[in-house]
């Protein structure tokens, strides 16, 4: 919080902010780097969630390197967009994307989940500049985002947006639907939800644990504009957010279809990797534990070699 926040004022750009965009190829390479660093930090931590952060790497690359108006050198910039991670257990992807964006040194990623680290197991606002909320217990982020979006409207800040990333399993929480009703009531078009639709949660698939479908119809019936998007396609995510910002009469939610564990062959689609890092246990279908990190990085480096500028 800064003293000037909460007052209407002219849009001011800090000196270090740049809206120069990366090419799609560079964004894809960035996402690949972020995935490798996620594996390394989880291996160092010896605990933590793998599947969600890997699946979200493309979305977080798109957010921090294209979509968000933000400035790592001025995390409290009054005119910044706000990103809330509601499913706090996926925070390794946020820490890693933030490190690549310049909020913290990349070597600090190896302190994840350790004593006195700024990178707490679940994100704490006071621990690290640039984090906008404290989360972990599920279901609260969309409400906080709604409160922020409503305040931006009260303060006549029409140039700011609030993005809230949620898990799909998290949608079991009633608090989410309280927020969904609220955002519709106040027509919070400056609130953009992004549901990580990876179909897994701790106890199994989402449709087994507590069916979410017809998920699109649920959000639509709550008064939201819904965009289905390939959450592992950076260009598609960027386009969907551009569209969401153009919807002015209601809030928008992206149902971002992602592959859990994306980029690591033995993790993809396997819910056993929801809450587990590499290197702590032997798992059916995966390499022995002492080779998991090496093989994951090998997979990612192979993928990296295939990223070309052809499709630009």
């Amino acid at each position: 919080m800064t003293a000037t926040e909460g007052k209407t004022k002219k849009f001011q750009t800090p000196r270090s902010f740049t809206d120069k965009k990366l090419s799609l190829q560079k964004l894809e390479l960035k996402a690949n780097d972020i995935r490798q660093d996620i594996i390394k930090s989880l291996e160092a931590a010896g605990s933590g969630h793998s599947a969600g952060p890997l699946g979200l790497a493309d979305i977080f690359t798109a957010l921090y390197f294209d979509i968000l108006k933000h400035d790592p050198k001025h995390p409290d910039w009054d005119d910044r967009d706000i990103l809330l991670l509601s499913n706090g257990h996926c925070v390794p992807v946020q820490y890693t994307a933030m490190a690549h964006a310049g909020y913290l040194p990349k070597k600090e990623l190896l302190t994840l989940r350790s004593y006195k680290s700024r990178l707490q197991g679940h994100p704490e606002r006071h621990a690290l500049p640039g984090l906008e909320n404290t989360s972990g217990p599920l279901g609260s982020g969309l409400s906080q985002g709604a409160g922020m979006a409503l305040t931006m409207r009260m303060n006549k800040q029409s140039h700011r947006w609030v993005y809230v990333v949620m898990g799909d399993g998290e949608l079991n929480e009633g608090n989410i639907w309280e927020a969904a009703m609220f955002a519709n009531k106040y027509k919070l078009h400056n609130l953009i939800g992004i549901v990580d639709r990876n179909n897994i949660q701790i106890d199994g698939t989402t449709e087994h644990v507590m069916p979410l479908e017809d998920l699109r119809a649920k959000w639509e019936s709550f008064g939201w504009h819904v965009v289905d998007v390939d959450g592992n396609n950076i260009e598609a995510v960027i386009d969907a957010c551009s569209m969401a910002r153009a919807i002015v009469e209601k809030p928008t939610v992206l149902i971002a279809h992602t592959i859990p564990g994306k980029g690591v062959d033995y993790m993809e689609f396997d819910h056993h990797w929801h809450g587990m890092p590499v290197g702590i246990a032997d798992v059916a279908g995966a390499p022995p534990k002492n080779q998991q990190a090496r093989e994951a990085l090998h997979d990612l480096r192979s993928l990296r070699g295939k990223i070309t500028g052809d499709h630009e």
């Binding site: 919080m1 909460g6 609260s140 906080q144 985002g145 709604a146 409160g147 922020m148 305040t151």
Partner: peptide, 12 residues
């Protein structure tokens, strides 16, 4: 209270 938390984060 969670909407209020968001509003407080914005200075209210």
């Amino acid at each position: 209270v969670t909407v209020a938390s968001g509003m407080a984060a914005m200075g209210k």
